[in-house]
Amino acid sequence: MPQDTDIAIDVQGAVKRYGTFTALKTISLSIRDNEFFTLLGPSGCGKTTLLRMIAGFEDVTEGAIYLYGDEIDALPPYKRPVNTVFQNYALFPHMNVLDNVGFGLEMLGQSKSETRARAGEALEMVQLSQFAARKPSQLSGGQQQRVALARALAPRPKVLLLDEPLSALDLKLRKAMQVELKHLQLETGITFIFVTHDQEEALTMSDRIAVMSSGELQQLGNAREIYEQPRNVFVADFIGDTNLMQVTVDAVADGRAECHLGGAHRLTCDAVGGIGAGAKVHMSLRPERLFLSADPVDANSLKGRVREMIYIGTDIATIVDLDGGPQFTVRSSNSSRGNARVFEPGTEVAINMEQGAARLLID
C-alpha cells in the first residue's frame, strides 16, 4: 500500500470471527492524522473489538490494518506506536502517581532521568503535577483517569486508543472531562480513537464518528452529518431523540415526496433516492425542530391533542397524540427567547415543523 501521511489508521475489509460467530463484518474506514475519531454504538456492536484489533490485542481474521501506510497485523502490541487507555484505568496501587506514569517508559528502556522528565511533562499536561507523590487510592476518580491518560501519553504514541474511559465518572465530571480530552487532543496533535456508547459524548468531542451496529458500519461522518442526515432507521433512532414513524409515499416529484401517516395526516418532505410512490418507509422528525401553536401555520401542520408536558429544566417536552395517528414529542427551549409555549393536557394543538425537518429513511 502506498504511504499516505494524512491517514493515521487505514482499516481495509477487516473481519473478525470467533469460531462461527462474526463479530466484525468487512469494516473499511480511514482515520486521519490528528483527528479525534469516535467508534459509537450499543454494547456488542463490535466497536471495542475493532479498537483491540488496532491495538494488537485481537488478530484480524480477514483484511488488513495499516498505520501511516505500514501494515501492522503481524506486529505484537508492544511494538506498535499505539497506546490504550482502558475503562478501569489499571493503575498500580503500590506506586505513586509519577512512577505509574513513568512505568511504560521504563519498560521501553528509557533512562531514569529521561523517564522522570517525560513523566513530569505528561503530568503537567493533565494538570496533576502537584499529585506526583500520591498513591492512586488518594485520588478521585477523575484524577485517576487523568493519571491513566498521562501514562498513555508519556511515550508519545502516534495514536491513542480510548476504550470508554469516562464511563465510570459521574455525569458532571464526565462532561468536564469530555472538554478536557478534546483540548488535550488538540494540544498534543495525537490521533485519538475513542470508543463510547454515549451519543451525546460522541457528538460533543468528535471530528468524525463511525456509527456501528451488529458488527457493521452504519454511517461515517461528522457530528452534524450524523445527527441531521442519518442514513437509515438505526442511525436516526440511536443518535439523539427523534419521532420515528412509518409513512406511505403517495407521490414523488421535483425532489419532493408527498406522504401520509395514520390515515388523513399528510405532509411533504425531501425525497430520498430509490424511494418511489407506494413505498412504506420510516420518517424521522427531531423534537426540537417542531413547534406547537393553537392553529396550523401551513399545509405540513398536523393536528393533535396534548397528552402531557414534561419539565426537563433546560427544555420542555410536550407529548401530543395525533388525531387517529401516532404520538409525537415536541421539545422547546425553556427560555423567554425559546419557542416554549405552555399547552395544558387535553388542549387541541397544531404540530408545525421547520423547513427540512422531516426526513425519509431507508430501513
Rank of each mutant, 00 (worst) to 15 (best):
M53Y: 12
A264I: 15
E180C: 06
I209D: 04
T61C: 08
D363R: 14
G304M: 03
V252K: 04
L322V: 13
P345N: 13
E35D: 11
P93Y: 13
G273I: 08
R32D: 13
F328S: 04
L51Y: 05
L181I: 14
H94E: 12
L186C: 06
V342L: 14
R156T: 10
E348P: 02
E180N: 10
H197N: 05
R134L: 14
L166Q: 03
L160M: 08
S336G: 15
G221E: 07
D33H: 11
P42A: 12
V249W: 03
A357Q: 10
D315R: 12
M245P: 04
D237W: 12
A202P: 02
L220E: 01
K182A: 12
I54G: 03
A90Q: 13
L161D: 02
L169P: 07
L244H: 11
K175E: 13
F238Q: 09
A117H: 12
I310E: 11
A358R: 13
A119W: 01
L186P: 06
D254G: 07
K25A: 15
G278H: 00
A55H: 00
L302C: 13
F37H: 05
L50Q: 08
R266I: 09
N100M: 08
G304W: 05
E228A: 09
E62D: 14
L203Q: 07
T204M: 07
Q143K: 02
H260C: 06
E187T: 10
L153I: 05
D4P: 07
T242H: 10
E114W: 02
G325M: 03
D4H: 10
D163S: 01
G346L: 13
P42L: 10
S213H: 11
T242M: 08
E114I: 00
S43K: 12
S129P: 05
H282I: 06
Q199G: 05
L360V: 11
L361M: 10
R146F: 05
K175T: 08
S213I: 01
A357F: 11
V272Y: 01
I312Y: 13
L290G: 03
P287H: 06
T48F: 10
S206F: 06
S336T: 15
L220R: 01
G304H: 02
V11F: 09
A154H: 01
D70S: 13
L40R: 12
A117Q: 08
C259H: 04
L181N: 03
R266L: 11
V211E: 02
L292C: 04
I27F: 11
R256C: 09
R337H: 15
R266D: 06
M95L: 15
S140G: 00
V281R: 06
A251W: 12
R17Y: 06
N83D: 04
A23W: 10
Q218W: 00
L166H: 00
P345T: 11
V126N: 04
A74V: 14
G44L: 13
Y311A: 07
S336C: 14
A119S: 12
P155G: 02
E348S: 15
A152G: 02
E180W: 07
V11L: 11
I193F: 01
S333T: 13
T196M: 03
T248G: 12
S214F: 03
Y18A: 08
G273V: 05
R146P: 01
K112E: 06
L160H: 00
R134V: 03
E35K: 08
H260G: 07
V249S: 02
K112I: 14
S111N: 02
T248F: 01
L181A: 08
F192K: 00
P2M: 15
F36L: 14
